[in-house]
Design a binder for these strands. Structure first.
Lengths: 221, 221
DNA sequence: ACCTGAACACCGTTCAAGT
DNA sequence: ACCTGAACACCGTTCAAGT
């Protein structure tokens, strides 16, 4: 109904319709029967073109991931570039909120982080980090970014916190600090929180920022 | 069948059986019909005692949360105590892996972190942090701990990574650093990673560690 | 090669009916 | 107050049958 049923059914057309459904109502709203209705075909045709629901969602993840623009580091110091990469990745994921849910459900956070991983390895090398140290750095940034995005998404779809109860909590936990109680009641500035955490991590793991003379490490590509 | 059908059906008995099912096969395996079968009653009895599936899962989360031991800070400096609190919370959540999944599904990470929040506020005050600064600190630790646990759980239930592909990735991303490629192929030392990240955060946000003379801040309890 | 309807084995939930 | 079976409105998937 939504998408024109012009011509033969294509794998592409199925994925398009599926993506539209997910975009509008979230992954849970994507049912094989509903998708078939949107396409104007029989449910079983979907199975012929893309396979079952699992395969469909896998394909959707892969497609959305390919649509994400590549991440290019910018900035003077390795620290600036790494923080920039983290921020860009977070922005990309924020722009595709359902992708995060899909990826989490399917245990693909590793896959999601792969493009950024390449870039971070280069930055680690440029900063003079190699081997196990470089790996630890990359992993730490991965956990940081992905973890933050997961928490952020989670809070967004949290049930409407009953304000009365929240007030109570704040008063109870804030212990003689009304300014803190107020701050805890306010919505979180997630962007700021994110940058704070990433910067702290990068500063702790990256060697002190010498401006690196010309080209610090070996051939890169 | 599993749990004895002795006496009248109780809300407690229903929750017990539900908890057992979730513990053994995960939250997805908890179906109203399956639960009724395990209890040896009609499905509809469950509705009378605890309400629908949503209410059941909510009750389960609340119950499991109450079972978690309270978190007590230990250590000399505020930094040590905060890191300890974070580590304890992570351990608790690791010991109840399905709780994390349930909490994430239902958008209750805020609720899950509440007990630790109280403790962290006290530590922030003890370290001389008040008002908005203290709130930011608490929030940062919250995102850090919860985020890490979410990523950790996600990776655990990730599909078996085809080793060939992973090898390729490593070789591709490692760029002239075989030790890094090997490190990336090895399983992550999540405990170490966690402590590294938390320590970096705490050091960045907590005022420099003076040993605090006797009692630094106002009345607390 | 592509598409179909019917059927199977599930779900959560409601409701009128029992005791 | 407590428990029941039947029924409703959904699911994903398979399969034999069509063209």
């Amino acid at each position: 109904m939504t998408s024109g049923a012009r011509g033969a059914l294509t794998r592409e057309a199925v994925l398009d319709a599926a993506a539209a459904l997910v975009k509008r109502h979230g992954p849970d709203a994507l049912t094989m029967r509903g998708l078939a209705a949107a396409l104007g075909t029989a449910v079983t045709s979907i199975y012929w073109h893309v396979g079952g629901r699992e395969a469909l969602l896998d394909a959707l993840v892969e497609r959305t991931m390919a649509e994400l623009g590549e991440i290019r580091p910018s900035g003077r110091t390795p620290e600036q570039r790494v923080v920039g990469v983290a921020r860009d990745l977070r922005r990309q994921l924020r722009d595709h909120p359902h992708l995060v849910a899909l990826v989490h459900e399917r245990g693909l956070t590793e896959r999601m982080f792969l493009p950024a991983q390449r870039v971070l390895v280069r930055e680690a090398h440029a900063a003079g980090l190699r081997g196990a140290r470089a790996a630890e750095f990359v992993r730490a940034v991965q956990f940081q970014v992905v973890g933050h995005v997961l928490v952020e998404r989670n809070r967004e779809r949290a049930p409407v916190q009953r304000p009365g109860e929240e007030e109570l909590w704040s008063a109870e936990t804030a212990g003689d600090d009304p300014a803190l109680a107020r701050a805890l009641a306010r919505p979180v500035d997630t962007e700021r929180l994110f940058l704070t955490a990433v910067r702290a991590l990068v500063r702790a793991l990256l060697p002190a920022g010498r401006p690196l003379p010309a080209r610090a490490s070996g051939p890169v590509g």
